[in-house]
Structures are given as C-alpha cells and as structure tokens.
C-alpha cells in the first residue's frame, strides 16, 4: 500500500487532479504518470488540488518542475490549490510561489484559466 491516491476530474478543457495521502520519493512516480498522460492527451490546463494531501517532500515538488516547461510551452499551466499551511510551507521554503500560481480554492484557479 502506497498511502497515496490521485482522483482525476475532467471538465471541458481543464483537468483537475485531487491528491490524497503522502507525496514522497515512493509515490512521486504515480503523479508523474498522471501528468505525463495529460501531456500525451494534449490536456495542458491542469489544476492540482492539495486539500487531502498530508505530506510532501522535495521528490513531490520535483514532479511539478519536470512538467511545467512543456505544459506552458503549449499554452497551458499547472495551477495549485487548497494547500494546508504545512504543505504551503514546503513550497514556500523552495521559492515555488514565484513560479507557480497558488490559489485558496479550485474555483479561483478555474476562473484564471477561462
């Protein structure tokens, strides 16, 4: 058991990934697979909802770095939402808020896309 789950929701051109559990070096490949699928399916508008994520390490953050360039090159973005203060602190520590748009709610991220 990996202690990590991803629920995928598609709404028109936006794909939303809901993360649950622990995102570490063991589970990061699962998220890589999902983001790779988005790119293969030419779905470049991606929202990642962290509401139910309890933990993230640099291996988890690294996944976003690995895909953002290609997604933006194709006119899309990865927007991040619903982070707990624990998760936000890790992103903040590594300077991610300067690179990624982080929203309190999914609705705000959707509006930014449309």
């Amino acid at each position: 058991m990996s202690g990590f789950e991803i629920a995928l929701l598609e709404n028109k051109e936006i794909v939303t990934l809901h993360l649950k559990g622990f995102l570490d070096a063991h589970t990061a490949p699962d998220l890589e697979t999902e983001l790779q699928k988005c790119i293969s399916n030419k779905r470049y508008k991606v929202i990642v909802n962290f509401q139910e994520l309890g933990y993230i390490s640099s291996a988890g953050l690294g996944v976003f770095m690995g895909f953002i360039e290609e997604i933006r090159k194709n006119g899309g973005d990865i927007k991040l939402t619903n982070m707990s203060s624990k998760i936000f602190r890790v992103f903040d520590l590594l300077g991610f808020p300067a690179l990624y748009e982080i929203f309190k709610t999914e609705e705000e991220a959707v509006q930014k896309f449309t």
Partner: peptide, 22 residues
C-alpha cells in the same frame, strides 16, 4: 542559489538545502 535553481527548472537535488534550512 534558489532563484537561479528554480529559473533553470532543475529537478531534484533540493534535499541537502532543505536539511540545512530545516
């Protein structure tokens, strides 16, 4: 240099920086 690091979008290698910060 985190700004340079992130602008080059390098993957991984942040572990030691985090240990020293935390």
């Amino acid at each position: 240099d985190m700004k340079k690091y992130l602008s080059e979008m390098r993957v991984g290698g942040l572990g030691i920086y985090l240990m020293q910060t935390l």
